Amino acid sequence: MISAYIIAAEKAINSDRFPKRLEMAKKFAKAEVINYEKVNAGETLKKTTGGRGPNACIEDLGLEDFYDQTKQKLRLETDRPQLLREMMVACRKSGTFSIMGVNGAFVDKIPFGAAFSKGVTFRMGQMHGQKYINKYIYF
């Protein structure tokens, strides 16, 4: 979250389901927070950005819902893309969608049509920022 401000973002919005991580995002990164178990993160992102959606969405954890949990238990899907889906739909036209968590798995029901029609740019790969963590994180 702090890195968003380093690259001159106007605001940073963090979505998570764990209250402790949401509180840390508020306290240390001065981020707006969304608990995606209480509200639809995609709809909230659109409302928060005046209906346009965020310029950039970054997925770095992998998340889950009942549908994905069931598919995982049946070994039909190995990742947890609930928030990934919502952010893909919320990302603004010509926005950037970055995936940097550990996502080497099989997922389905990804709304590529929505991303395609908006001209969203995808960037993905393993995150190589470990050398910067101590510099910016104060716990």
Rank of each mutant, 00 (worst) to 15 (best):
K20G: 02
K20N: 05
K20S: 13
K20I: 01
R21P: 00
L22A: 11
L22E: 11
L22F: 13
M24H: 14
A25C: 10
K26Q: 03
K27V: 15
A29Q: 05
K30Q: 08
K30L: 08
V33P: 02
V33Y: 04
I34E: 05
I34S: 06
N35H: 10
Y36E: 07
E37T: 11
E37G: 10
N40H: 03
A41S: 14
A41L: 09
E43K: 09
T44S: 05
L45C: 07
L45A: 10
L45F: 08
K46Y: 09
T48F: 00
T49N: 15
G50P: 01
G50T: 06
R52S: 08
R52Q: 13
G53Q: 00
P54W: 06
P54I: 04
P54V: 05
N55V: 02
A56G: 00
A56C: 09
C57H: 04
I58A: 03
L61P: 00
L61M: 15
G62H: 12
L63E: 06
E64W: 02
E64M: 14
E64N: 08
D65K: 11
D65V: 08
F66S: 06
T70Q: 03
T70P: 01
K71H: 15
Q72N: 14
Q72I: 10
Q72C: 10
K73A: 05
K73Y: 08
R75I: 07
R75K: 14
L76Y: 06
E77I: 04
T78I: 08
T78G: 12
T78P: 04
D79R: 14
P81F: 07
L84R: 15
R85T: 00
M87L: 15
M87S: 05
M88Y: 02
A90H: 12
C91N: 09
C91S: 07
C91T: 13
C91W: 06
R92G: 04
R92N: 01
K93H: 02
K93Q: 05
S94W: 08
S94N: 11
G95A: 10
T96D: 02
F97Q: 02
S98K: 12
I99M: 15
G101H: 14
V102E: 10
V102D: 12
V102C: 03
V102K: 04
V107F: 12
V107G: 15
D108I: 13
K109C: 06
K109P: 01
P111W: 13
A114L: 06
A114S: 13
A115E: 00
A115G: 00
A115K: 04
F116Q: 12
S117I: 13
S117P: 00
S117R: 10
K118Y: 00
K118I: 01
G119A: 10
G119N: 07
V120T: 00
M124V: 01
M124E: 01
M124T: 08
M124Q: 06
M124H: 08
G125H: 14
G125T: 07
Q126N: 12
Q126E: 04
H128T: 09
H128F: 15
H128E: 12
H128K: 15
H128C: 11
H128N: 13
Q130K: 14
Q130H: 09
K131E: 12
Y132P: 02
Y132T: 08
I133R: 00
I133N: 00
I133A: 01
N134G: 15
Y136R: 04
Y136K: 01
